[in-house]
Design a protein around this nucleic acid. Structure first.
Lengths: 223, 223, 223, 223
DNA sequence: CATGAATGAGGGTTCATTCAT
DNA sequence: CATGAATGAACCCTCATTCAT
């Protein structure tokens, strides 16, 4: 049994316990490999109660996605101080994002790995959350560009791609840092920032890397 | 039944048909949700034949991973002309990578999403492929730094981290490009190149991004 | 369906029903040929319930062995009055043994035929039971020999061989009596006793049959 | 592969190789657990050839039983010199029986353990062999009684029961001797002879063991 | 003759889900 | 409210058996 058994808790509390157990199980095992038995056991309740409160495995998974998505976007919003310049806001948002995902690896696994792996019922949830975050970041980047009076017409899609790339790079770095002794998570974050920031800056200045045939030796857009 | 039924094929051919069906099924459903029945049906053979040739679901999945990993690394290597400057080689490698993953979305899903989600038997296969690509990219970065006659003493570990980040970003971008209609491999490659190359250049010039408190308006290291 | 379907029984009762069905099926078909489907059907329950209560075919078989072994040893012990002389105790023990095995042919088949045919998981269970019974019989024989002040040093192994022979003879006789109309189990037991007892007596008196070259006409140890 | 592959052997030889492999596999694994694949492999031939020569698993098993039964009865007959007194003939027959079963443990396992465990198709074969041996033993007992000029009117049925018991005891002892290291065929035969001969003698002298209530200490019919 | 290719049928096991108490 | 009891449906895997070459 996973949790201490204490009877007669209000429904809201019981539900959160179930969701905690479900997020952990889904995040570690995947949607299919997670069994309702294990989840109920980990939550310290009987299986029919899980069904009474959350209807089905699909609904339970959807509830997990929704709760974790809300927590993630809340964390990002809470990490950003609205008065600051846009580049600081972006930086703070990224820090909040990486901090939250590092502290909730199972929730992040549910959102990023498991939910996308499975079919239509869940993709919509993920898309909604994703759009919210991407819209937030996009807005920050656009504002930053406007503040810098440069290149105010970044395409929406391009920003979305950047977010994807950032997240992928961050995940790889995190795994690599974990597997490489002597490398802290903070260093990994700094490396990522180094890696990414200049690229964003150039993008916003309208000086992308060009497939120039004469390009040689010196990397980067400037001579 | 999925395929036209033509009896009595030599074993090698049948095996490829089975792997085709398996990659497609695993890529779309995930490892657990994919059923051997569906795979056999899609391959146009009976289930016992799949087991006769490929032993088990685990072995079949491993065979998929190995085949797709080999095809991907081969495509990347084939896309790079060795004589060119390093940044051109990187660009070509990225283009080949995104082209191949766009043309083999199921294979890429197997490698990127499904294989990493499941336990030890498969992680090793992915790690091997990844290390090969990361080594390739690392070498390109080192050569580029040497060609630029700048900062030739980039720490080995830092370069490794950069390569990890680049590869991770590429992996995520590929999945995103696959899932986003209207995104070409070329665009994806350009986005990543934009995103990454300037950062690499700054790094090599010894001008990393710094969390400067006075930073305002213009993001990036330069005023 | 094998049994009347009465729903919602307490677990202990259902488990006994399952064991009844399993003993019958294993005893008649053998371990491999017995199917969980048939057992569940005969028990009047669905297959998952069998697995819920008894885990696996192996565990189910082991549970059968244990239950039947316990029942057999209990029957033998219950049939013996401890105050009597050893030869009487032995006689009563044999009677109880043959009575019980005749009344539980499937259980006896499980113990004697099926369990020994299969590998390690089950052999240990049988060995344990066997040793208990053989130890019991050995003790009786040894005590009987001591009471008779004769040949108190019968070898352990020899006694074990006698037990084997007795059991084999009894089984053959039982099958033969069953197949031969007009022959009761009691007569069979008496025949066996006739057959065996004198041999035991001679053994204990230290007058074994000898491969004497001059032996002729009169069988047995006496001239 | 189990056997050296030498092509183009006459059919009779190939069949014996197959039967060798089948006896070994059936004897060790049991009828159900033995697979035609393993048998064909052990025989060094392809599976369809086994079917061409021996039709089916059932027929193959039957052929094994027949061959081993014939070999056993032949060995017993060959071990007996007809001119000797009956007890000597019995002794020699037992020795031959235990020697043969010790030298062909797999064949004996097929006859004694496996064939009896499974249904009707095979039981008939075993019954036939058994009846032949029982008839042989019965005749010996009758002749012995006549030679001893005692109690020549032993009931036919009683003698048959005795023979059954003797053969059953021999069968069990043979299996036990095979499974017990350090037990020679000669010892097994002596144990059985000891065990049985005195009882036979008493029977023929009209002194059966009786369940006398006053029996104490000394087992057996004599005071 | 001999074999590689192929399969229908069934067995053990698990899982999401539901009643009756 | 809460739970022990129960199951239909599937899934992975194996086996005896047969063609076409």
């Amino acid at each position: 049994m996973g949790a201490v058994k204490s009877k007669r808790m209000p429904r809201a509390v019981r539900e959160q316990q179930m969701l905690d157990a479900a997020v952990r199980t889904f995040g570690q095992r995947g949607y299919r490999a997670a069994s309702m038995d294990e989840i109920a056991d980990l939550a310290g309740v009987s299986k029919p109660l899980v069904y009474l409160y959350l209807n089905s495995k699909e609904d339970l998974f959807t509830a997990c996605i929704r709760r974790e998505a809300a927590a993630l976007t809340a964390a990002v919003r809470a990490g950003v101080r609205p008065g600051l310049p846009a580049d600081r806001q972006l930086w703070e948002g990224l820090r909040a994002f990486f901090t939250h995902t590092a502290q909730n690896p199972d929730g992040w696994a549910v959102l990023h790995r498991q939910a996308r792996t499975h079919g239509e019922p869940f993709a919509a949830e993920i898309t909604a959350m994703r759009e919210e975050i991407v819209a937030f970041v996009t807005q920050l980047i656009v504002v930053a560009a406007r503040e810098a009076h440069r290149n105010p017409s970044l395409a929406e899609r391009e920003v979305a791609g950047l977010a994807e790339a950032l997240v992928g790079a961050a995940e790889s770095l995190a795994a690599w840092a974990n597997a490489t002794p002597g490398t802290s998570a903070r260093q990994a974050a700094a490396t990522l920032m180094n890696f990414a920031w200049a690229g964003l800056g150039n993008l916003m200045e309208g000086q992308p890397w060009a497939e120039a045939p004469e390009s040689a030796g010196t990397p980067g857009p400037r001579p």
